[in-house]
Design a binder for these strands. Structure first.
Lengths: 235, 235
DNA sequence: CGACGGGTTGAGGAAACTCAACGCATGTGG
DNA sequence: CCACATGCGTTGAGTTTCCTCAACCCGTCG
């Protein structure tokens, strides 16, 4: 995990960050220290229970948020993509609620939570931006609850693959750094069951996999399995 | 559904509301129009897709947030208790994401979303309070994901009953307005399966039920089933 | 080389679902 | 008042879905 000072003014993500609402002048005057962090698969950004000092913005790559049950079973609560935030629960709780583990080579911005706290009290725009991100996270969590509560394994997996693909538009071959245990921990299934279904999808030529990359050959077939028909009009 | 003007200054919930940080002077100067609403079982506060005009604070009673899948299956995304907020997704989305249905006789405060929007831009304390509520909601959703993803039906139900009880401390006989279909829709199970397990709990004298009220006779037994107590091996 | 972790496959069993029937309240119209 | 429908809860039988346990393959790493 390497890190250096970062220059927010020139960041490619600037217009999608929590500082998006600020103009150059304001941004320069923040005096906010932002670290630029590069890390790779398996790196642990923080563990559950760690005292929360930093928050992060994921610029590229993928991160999983993991929680484990008393019985030892691990669950992936959320998967993070380009543009997502993590660690912001530290603004309220003293400790992190889950572990954050890097899935693929990633670049992140690391912010000091105490500084951010002070900043957000002064700047309603920042506060507002953070609130919107919380809302997005809640939305995605609620969607996940629907999946787990109402769909069977095949449909969950199909939905998931299609959603994963949405994060890489205009890419034929998608980065897919998730292991079978990861998929299982996210979808609430056993690794064997996930493996069987993935093998099934391949046999039906719905998908194709190779070395951490995934290609979706028959999106509409997956969509049928997922229980939603392609682009029917939204009411 | 009756409603009248409400006087926030004298509200019993004032110190737990999103206006908690404001002093009497500030609160009086808001000019915020707040409706006091009373409603009973089955009332629909709003439906999924309704354009979002109002947000609510639940003062007493219980409300369910429901989403339904294309296949017709309904899922209860969240259950709301005394002090919880609802409808605030309207601050970001133009339409409500789920339906809000009253489970038990309830009293709510209804706020105009546009007014609230303007207010929160002016008052960081309000913005901050709302952000904290989003965070709480996210936390509870993540806990729910854990339940659905990692626990068996018996354990889910046991955990749920114990959590429900926590919302009514120092009450022996708890208000319990949930039907079997409700429980099933919240826990991701079939109504029959829920019914069987509840009957089991009664046979083991873990719980007792009568006309919308529930008594938990053996919390520690339920806690063991819930998996909360370190690895007792089941016989 | 052997150990190891990830993926696959099979067999058997447990968990949960579906379908169906029935009891019991409540409500409605004749 | 009865006859009847309706909705919830319960229970049973049979089936599907999913899990567990185990074996095996394969690439990587020491």
């Amino acid at each position: 995990m390497q890190h250096k000072r970062s220059d927010c003014l020139q960041c490619a993500m600037r217009d999608r960050s929590i500082f998006a609402g600020l103009n150059t002048e304001e941004l320069r005057s923040l005096g906010m220290e932002v670290q630029d962090i590069a890390c790779h698969q398996g790196d642990v950004l923080y563990r559950k229970g760690d005292s929360a000092r930093h928050a992060y913005t994921l610029r590229t790559g993928a991160v999983k948020l993991v929680k484990s049950l008393e019985n030892g079973r691990e669950v992936i609560i959320r998967l993070l993509h380009r543009g997502d935030l993590l660690g912001f629960e530290g603004m309220q709780d003293a400790q992190h609620r889950h572990a954050a583990i890097v899935l693929a080579p990633s670049q992140l911005c690391r912010l000091d939570l105490a500084e951010l706290q002070r900043l957000s009290e002064r700047l309603p725009k920042v506060q507002e931006a953070i609130r919107q991100r919380w809302q997005q996270a809640l939305q995605s969590s609620e969607d996940h609850i629907m999946e787990l509560g109402a769909k069977r394994a095949e449909a969950r997996l199909a939905t998931f693959l299609l959603q994963w693909a949405e994060h890489y538009p205009r890419l034929r071959s998608l980065p897919f750094p998730l292991s079978r245990p990861d998929l299982a921990a996210f979808l609430g299934l056993s690794t064997e069951h996930v493996s069987r279904i993935m093998a099934d999808f391949k046999r039906h030529a719905f998908i194709q996999e190779q070395r951490g990359h995934l290609e979706i050959l028959a999106p509409q077939s997956l969509a049928e399995l997922a229980g939603k028909w392609p682009d029917h009009k939204p009411d």
